[in-house]
Design a protein around this nucleic acid. Structure first.
Lengths: 231, 231
DNA sequence: CGGCATCTTTGCGACTTAGCAAAAAAAACG
DNA sequence: CGTTTTTTTTGCTAAGTCGCAAAGATGCCG
């Protein structure tokens, strides 16, 4: 199974799951590793799509910025995740920006090569469709939350979701495993950092969370879920 | 080119664009037509995915409902559009519900057959990826709007978008070509029918729109765009 | 053609949340 | 180790929307 670390990573990611080893070797042959320091940009919004990445280690944030500078965080990506889905769909430019939020290693390859491999290997293309479907579904849910829920509830759901996808169990509870400021949470939930701060302070007082500078620990996830459930 | 009306429709849709005629014939052989009256349900949220549809004529609304009954309109689909993308991705159940908003004709086929055709024809799979990418991008934009813009602006942008995708030029301006109530607009923009009503009334007074019962005509689209642009 | 169901409008009060401002806390830097 | 920068907290005020209620249109159906 383990031919090389990179092939292993590819085989475990959602895009190359179940794909023949020869294809993986081909992919590996055209791919390269690249490091990004925390805060470094992988690509900017509207950049032409040249390269496609898979995260080996680290964490990447996808954002979208409006003309007047307001930012929205579309999602966070972690190990095994695809960065730059536009390379899959054949779009000309990146609809959002990608930034490393931790020191990260990405596996990159030319977008055209990937497309070419997809067109020759239906399984890869099918995986790509499934991948896009999952992301679409996630966005649908977030859209619904944003449209129907009040701020407190949105923040709670966002935290619980982050805990699920990037949570680290500690003695104090589940810690979100990457730096996450009040501003970041605000940009994920469509509110302001002030409101996020007030909300977290409230929960802190009730012993539900345990947060600090760019760090959030959910002390009792179930209790937090309950707290926002009861009308 | 025009072998049969159905093949023509398939060839023009985004999913089967550029696909060999033999494949289209194959698709057509397993597909069937089905009528839906205005208001009729195509599938419910959480229904198992059995059938995949393409709209021939008419209009379909995709919604998502929360446990407590609140609804969000994810999007409207028109002729040529794919209904039930879950059949493409291989999901077990439909993440949203689909309802005809006008009397509609859909072309249906078994989901498994479609998947099988996709796995044999990379071009179809590639088209599916592109299609999902476009929808994902649309949702990103709506998410950003919902997170950063005030209600009036969201309503305006939503109307302008609907006008683009389902607008009919008339002497009075661009008319949204399907029944659209205040409640519907509210469910698309994350607000209440009251606020939508007030907003439209305001625009009505300024001669920007011309709306009635389940009907909206944008008298001067550019003026409406400008009106919400100026801070 | 009248009655009924549905959709829309509008007023008013309440409440959530934004926005501004300033201080406090925490980390980074030289 | 003191200074600077970044992030967080909190108070206060104002504004935007919601939510409720009731009346007014509109179109459908028998």
């Amino acid at each position: 199974m383990a031919e090389s670390p990179d092939i292993d990573i590819l085989a475990r990611g959602e895009l190359f799951r179940g794909v023949a080893v020869e294809v993986l070797r081909e992919v590996q042959a055209v791919s390269f590793r690249r490091k990004f320091a925390a805060g470094e940009t992988v690509y900017q919004q509207e950049d032409p799509v040249t390269t496609f990445y898979i995260i080996v280690v680290g964490r990447v944030r996808i954002t979208q910025t409006t003309l007047d500078g307001q930012q929205v965080i579309i999602r966070y990506l972690g190990p095994g995740d695809v960065v730059g889905y536009a390379a899959l769909t054949g779009a000309e430019t990146h609809p959002g920006a990608a930034t490393a939020v931790d020191d990260s290693h990405l596996l990159g390859m030319p977008a055209v090569t990937l497309r070419e491999i997809m067109s020759r290997n239906a399984r890869v293309a099918m995986n790509a469709v499934a991948l896009m479907g999952e992301r679409y579904r996630d966005l649908q849910i977030r859209l619904r939350e944003l449209a129907t829920e009040k701020v407190e509830r949105r923040i709670a759901h966002t935290l619980l979701r982050l805990a699920q996808q990037a949570g680290r169990r500690t003695s104090r509870g589940v810690e979100i495993a990457f730096p996450l400021s009040r501003q970041d949470l605000a940009e994920m939930t469509g509110t302001t950092l002030h409101t996020v701060s007030r909300t977290l302070s409230g929960w802190e007082g009730r012993g539900l969370v345990n947060s600090g500078r760019r760090r959030v620990v959910i002390a009792r996830p179930e209790a937090l879920a309950d707290a926002v459930e009861e009308v």
